[in-house]
């Protein structure tokens, strides 16, 4: 089990998550090794299906980096995302997946440190949880 490196899929809103990622890269902060990034124009672009598909096709955890509420460039994208993530979590509980595998994290453009810290924490948490049993790979 010690060699298990969880795969994290991170959806990044281009308004906040992506600049935060760029900042984290510039600062050469530590990131989990097994990370896949999906930039989206707004967190409201992310469908419920995207979140579940990611888990199905090999991710151990899914993280969505969105803007703070009432801070969305497109007014209510992150509010939409919240309800979709809630719905996805309901489905995950029904099929027996842990809710911790899916999480929204609100960042601002300048929170590169927070960005990397959260991802490292998430990787530790997933390492404890073990591999995602729902994946078909």
């Amino acid at each position: 089990m010690s060699t298990f490196e969880p795969k994290i899929v991170a959806f990044c809103c281009e308004q906040s998550g992506l600049p935060a990622l760029e900042m984290a890269k510039t600062l050469k902060l530590k990131m989990p090794d097994n990370l896949e990034l999906v930039p989206v124009p707004c967190s409201g672009r992310i469908e419920t299906l995207y979140l579940l598909k990611a888990l199905e096709s090999g991710a151990d955890g899914v993280v969505v980096f969105a803007c703070y509420e009432e801070n969305c460039q497109y007014l209510q994208g992150n509010v939409r995302l919240k309800s979709r993530v809630g719905y996805a979590k309901q489905i995950m509980t029904k099929i027996g997946l842990e809710g911790e595998r899916l999480e929204i994290f609100h960042v601002a453009t300048n929170s590169g440190v927070k960005f990397s810290e959260f991802l490292m924490q998430k990787a530790d948490q997933l390492r404890l949880l073990g591999p995602n049993l729902g994946k078909i790979a």
Binding site: G44, R45, R80
Partner: peptide, 9 residues
Amino acid sequence: FGCGICVAE
């Protein structure tokens, strides 16, 4: 504005 909210919904 290209936010994609409609695309997802």
